[in-house]
Computed example of a mutant assay.
Amino acid sequence: MTILEKLDRPFLCYTGIETDLIFNQGVDLPGFATFPLLENEEGRELLTKSYLEQVELAREMGCGLMFESVTWVANKDRAAAIGYSANLLEQINVDAVQFIRELRDNICDVPIILSAQVGPRGDGYKPDSQMDDGEAEQYHQHQLAQLAKAKPDIVSAFTISYPEEAIGIVRAAQKHQLPVAISFTVETDGLLPTGMPLGEALDAVDAATDNYAEYFLINCAHPEHFLPNLNDGPWIERIAGMVANASRCSHAELDVATELDDGDPKELGTYFAMIKNTYPHMRIFGGCCGTDMRHMREIALATT
């Protein structure tokens, strides 16, 4: 059974833990990295609390849940910037998936998919130094090889901003026989940070990889930004869901923000109801930057 076939109901997906920890809970996350929390009991308790809050919401709403591993920045370049060597990363990536597997093993009444997160090599908002697809495959295959040892259900690449990097990730996943999903981020104009329309990016990835990706997502943008650019082209059927920001701010504004813009949870839920009604094939819904369980509850109410 493919991952898409397992999405037999709405599945919640929460990727906003970093902003919640930093702004709401006062946790220091150098380099926006959550994987160091696995190294001590206090950090593991924080992560466990977050995952179990998601479980309780999914249980209440009768929906499924994506357990996202804390490996979004656990790649060579971004981990090195906060003092982690390449040798340390292998165990970190394996441990992060094992952590969510052990949590899932104790839950029998909520469908849970183990999603091993990967992120861009650099800044997902500002792709100043772009790789070609061959370089991207070579770069990302190191983390994909580590994650493959942990056997997640799927690898999910979030905040990808140009198709060549997405193509490299998909090819690396295919090499290691891992199901993979790609989530693109868009700017306030609904276009990728490079200026490419979203549909063109999806078509480019599929054309270069023989449609190997299980599905695509949109994340780290407010619905007001990406909804106007969605249309009835064939590529829309490849998008399995949305993981939205709470804020309407641009990525440049979010980068320098000293206070959290948590938007309006109820309004965000209204947008998700519109998405669900307009695109009934979509199954994955959730919150990214600026969201917390208030937003996730509204999203769940709107889509289940």
Rank of each mutant, 00 (worst) to 15 (best):
L230W: 13
T48Q: 09
G122C: 08
S247G: 06
E253V: 03
G195R: 10
D105M: 09
L47K: 06
C13D: 04
F184Y: 15
L268W: 02
F226H: 07
G124W: 01
Y51I: 06
P10E: 11
S183I: 01
A252P: 04
I169V: 13
D232G: 08
S247V: 03
T258Q: 06
R294G: 04
R78F: 03
R101K: 15
C288E: 01
L230H: 09
L37I: 14
A257D: 08
E187A: 11
G233R: 04
L7A: 04
M296Q: 14
Q98H: 15
R9F: 07
D292L: 10
N93R: 11
M66N: 00
S183V: 04
A116G: 14
H140S: 04
A74Y: 06
V27I: 15
P127F: 05
D292V: 12
P111F: 12
L103D: 03
Y139M: 00
G64T: 03
L254F: 07
F23A: 06
D262E: 12
P120I: 03
E39L: 15
I169Y: 05
E200P: 00
Q177H: 13
A157G: 08
D262T: 05
A257S: 15
E68S: 14
V256P: 02
L202H: 02
C220G: 01
V55G: 00
V180N: 09
P228M: 12
T303K: 11
P197E: 13
D20Q: 14
L89T: 06
L178N: 12
Q141H: 07
A74R: 05
Y279V: 05
F11E: 09
Y279E: 02
V205N: 00
P10G: 11
G83T: 11
L114F: 09
Q138C: 01
Q130T: 06
Y139C: 02
E56G: 07
I107A: 01
G16E: 00
Y14F: 15
I100K: 05
F216Q: 02
E42K: 15
G134T: 09
R171Y: 11
V55H: 02
A244T: 14
I239N: 00
L21M: 13
L103S: 03
Y139L: 01
K49I: 02
D128Y: 07
V70C: 13
A208E: 04
R171H: 10
